[in-house]
Design a protein around this nucleic acid. Structure first.
Lengths: 187, 187
DNA sequence: ACCTGAACACCGTTCAAGT
DNA sequence: ACCTGAACACCGTTCAAGT
């Protein structure tokens, strides 16, 4: 609130005349973002629809990282983004799931998406400025002892390239493969 | 830091003589928590091993919710918890995955686990006290218009019971079913 | 070596007051 | 109706000083 009011050359308290709370402000911005989300043309195949909706949802989180912790508090999604939930559940049903299964699978997808979004560092913006203040940075698990952690040791070298090859889509397709009835779609 | 020092009847600055940073302190506590984690006896079947390790990982997050955002910053896991990663990747390989596939599937599981942990509200502790300060609470998607959101409308009534029936294990098994080669285990 | 006090630059929010 | 200033109760951290 203080920072925002500063960018507007105003006082913190001016904001409180338009908004009860920081929470109310966040909700309003959330809905604003939700309204601006592009609504892509979806393919006919329900499995492909799910993937496309989920990827735009994921992209929305990457573009607006602050949203994820706010949504995690469980308040609201911004009504203008509800079509995504509807679309995912509907397409899951079209893939042959029952209503309950569809709901649960949506839940799984949601957790996966939010989890990855939380762990994806926000865009390096211009004002990152490479800080160079050393702070305390813990030694990562760069070289695990091969004796105790043989598999990690084997992976250690290629960790970066492996991580870069991982994609949101990969995990999503695994979830779908595991949740959808076999043969629901050509694949 | 200030709050902690207050509970110790000390000054904020006393802490800084033992620790460079808030980050260093967090890392130390993180490692302390990691060391106290119970290490369950694991079954022989690799798929069951994965499930058991993941569930204790998930339980650890539920018990220590503050850990999740800290880990999300990507610094460190606490060396004493690395055995979990090793165990999961090893068991995935034992299920028939290649090293890369195992790494990626572990990644998927991790995102799913973190995502669900973030969304699970912390234990209602005694000091929650039901606040009763109304604040701003957004109207949830309780009754979606059946015209625009037919599936959500159908689910709306049972949302609570459906959510309560959902379990961490369900999503996890879906991921495993989708990621593991077919017939890798009896199922 | 270990701790303290004062200070700096932040937060969200309340309350009484100004136009 | 809209904005302000002073105040309260918070943050993490630095810096000079005390024992």
């Amino acid at each position: 609130m203080r920072r925002l009011s500063r960018t507007m050359d105003s006082t913190p308290m001016a904001l409180y005349h338009h908004v009860r709370d920081k929470d109310e402000l966040l909700t309003l911005v959330l809905e604003h973002v939700a309204q601006d989300l592009p609504r892509p043309e979806l393919p006919d195949d329900p499995r492909e629809r799910i993937i496309m909706v989920c990827e735009s949802m994921y992209q929305a989180f990457i573009d607006n990282p602050w949203v994820v912790p706010v949504l995690a508090r469980g308040e609201l999604v911004g009504p203008s983004a509800v079509w995504m939930t509807e679309e995912i559940i509907g397409s899951l049903i079209a893939c042959g799931l029952g209503h309950e299964q569809a709901f649960w699978t949506h839940q799984t997808i949601w957790y996966y998406t939010a989890g990855q979004a939380v762990h994806t560092p926000p865009h390096k913006t211009a004002d990152s400025e490479d800080d160079s203040a050393p702070h305390y940075s813990a030694a990562a698990v760069t070289d695990p002892s091969p004796a105790r952690f043989p598999h990690l040791a084997k992976l250690a070298g290629d960790a970066r390239s492996l991580e870069s090859q991982y994609s949101y889509r990969l995990g999503l397709t695994h979830i779908l493969d595991g949740a959808l009835p076999p043969g629901s779609t050509v694949r």
